[in-house]
Design a binder for these strands. Structure first.
Lengths: 104, 104
DNA sequence: TGAATATATGAATATCTGTTCATTTATTAA
DNA sequence: TTAATAAATGAACAGATATTCATATATTCA
């Protein structure tokens, strides 16, 4: 796997680029982005997030599944609740990079 | 504009997050991503890109418009040809960050 | 000017995606 | 076990989006 990476880190390998597009797709939805930002400084339950964003529990749950599948969040069960957190620091950094571009 | 940025740079301001989602949406398509990677180390014409990716000129042109509108590429006319380059280093960095996440 | 080439654009379409509603699964506490 | 609460899931629908085809615009050169 390591030998596929180009020296300049912008490897044009087509399969990786498909995966990369899939990753960015996850960041390309405001609901998911808002969830990630919320989780960037707090561990929250599904209900917490839904109330905070004033959206349906089902919507949040569906989107958390997407985030989970892409390893962007981690879950921990505590009784009836599931507590979510960001998975790693890449997430924050990707968001910061995007923010930098937008704010010129 | 500057006062909207949070100290930790993951500002939860909802309007900015919509813009941010729009930006990531642009990265979330493999064709656009492949174009950006191609342009990361060369200035290329529309035809160059279309041939390199083995896709229709029209497809590339449509996607270049999206990249232009989001200030991710710059254009220069030379005779009948339009030569495209990446607009700034943020683009490369965003791609690198995503790559880092994928490659764990 | 007219032909040839490069790029851009508009309409149409097929596919994808986010949300909602209804329901199910899982856990706790009575 | 049963009722109550939290979260996940599936189907359906509406809206968004990438590609294609056909055409228009722009530039060069004869």
């Amino acid at each position: 796997m390591d030998e596929k990476i180009c020296p300049d880190k912008t490897c044009p390998d087509i399969e990786i680029l498909f995966d990369l597009a899939d990753l960015f797709k996850v960041f390309g939805d405001s609901t998911r982005l808002r969830i990630m930002v919320l989780l960037s400084d707090a561990e929250l339950s599904v209900t917490d997030i839904a109330e905070s964003l004033k959206m349906e529990q089902s919507t949040i749950s569906h989107q958390l599944r997407v985030l989970r599948q892409n390893k962007l969040v981690r879950v921990r069960r505590d009784g009836k609740q599931m507590y979510y957190t960001l998975d790693d620091d890449h997430v924050k950094k990707i968001i910061e990079m995007g923010m930098d571009h937008i704010l010129e």
